[in-house]
Write a protein that binds this DNA or RNA. Structure first.
Length: 287
DNA sequence: GGGCAGGTGTAAT
DNA sequence: ATTACACCTGCC
């Protein structure tokens, strides 16, 4: 079944854009398998949009469309791109990045995934999250596991967490799990709050700094004004808007707020993808 | 094997 | 107020 409103959404770019860590591509490269809620889902690239291969029939289409960020009230990627195209700089960016959507993922899984992401890279994050799921999550069909509930992570032995290659982040993960399991960090409430207030609350969690807080806001809590600045995004902004001159973090944040407003989250996704595709790290000085 | 990349917390100025 | 460094893992 072709999912409504997915025309112009690029499944590859969306799932490989560093916002989700649990999708796997089948060898042909045009079918992805992952977990949405408690369902194992398979999605296929299609010239007309995204095709839902399984579960077939039933009422899964609606929650899956919500997850994919294409229901109108979530802000649609096509609308975001149409608006961003007014920015002359984005005429250079969009040809490499068009079709990226911002997924509406489970805030709890996002919280832990991005705590793990600090000072880390995508392959290692992916490995850690997969190991957590296998070690502590409930099995679904086909060797796929749901991401473990907060109580399971809160009660896990440190040794088990270490086994998942979390390194020094293991205590952060367990502490965050205990906050959520104990009701002292209410993610649903953060989603309803104003973005700035939710950000303040996240910054009190050990292991969460500005970058991770912004990722949780954007990918898990639906706050599309958030603009996570990692090295790629910093490079892209400096290169495209400041002639390659270094800027301070807060200047980049202020620039994004002013320039992109409610589209900041989308802008960030495009700039991140652009930097990864087109910008190399600054060359080392000659030996 | 040593060097490096990647955010955050902490201790230093 | 900003700045320097340690933290863990995996890849080169």
């Amino acid at each position: 079944m072709l999912l409504p409103d997915t025309a112009g959404v690029d499944l590859v770019r969306t799932l490989d854009s560093g916002q989700a860590f649990r999708w796997r591509w089948e060898p042909a490269g045009d079918v992805a398998a992952g977990v949405i809620g408690r369902r194992v889902v398979r999605l296929a690239v299609d010239t007309r949009g995204i095709r839902l291969l399984s579960p077939a029939g039933g009422g899964a289409g609606e929650p899956i469309r919500r997850y994919l960020g294409v229901v109108p009230r979530g802000g649609h990627p096509r609308r975001a791109e149409a608006a961003l195209a007014n920015d002359p700089v984005f005429s250079r960016v969009l040809p490499h990045t068009a079709g990226i959507s911002i997924l509406a993922q489970d805030p709890w899984e996002i919280l832990i995934s991005f705590i793990v992401s600090q000072n880390n890279n995508i392959p290692k994050i992916t490995r850690s999250i997969e190991r957590l799921a296998r070690a502590l999550g409930e099995p679904l069909a086909g060797g796929v596991f749901v991401f473990p509930r907060p109580e399971r992570l809160a009660a896990a032995r440190m040794h088990t967490l270490r086994t998942c290659s979390l390194g020094y982040r293991a205590p952060y993960v367990r502490a965050a799990a205990r906050l959520v399991a104990g009701g002292r960090l209410d993610l649903a409430a953060l989603a309803r709050m104003e973005c700035h207030a939710a950000r303040e609350a996240l910054l009190h969690v050990p292991g969460i700094g500005e970058k991770v807080a912004d990722c949780v806001l954007l990918f898990g809590l639906g706050h599309h004004t958030a603009f996570p600045v990692d090295v790629c995004v910093r490079r892209a902004v400096e290169h495209l808007y400041f002639r390659g001159r270094p800027r301070r973090l807060r200047d980049i944040q202020a620039f994004a707020r002013e320039r992109f407003g409610p589209l900041a989250g989308y802008a960030q996704q495009h700039l991140f993808a652009y930097a990864r595709a087109r910008l190399r790290p600054p060359a080392l000085p000659p030996a």
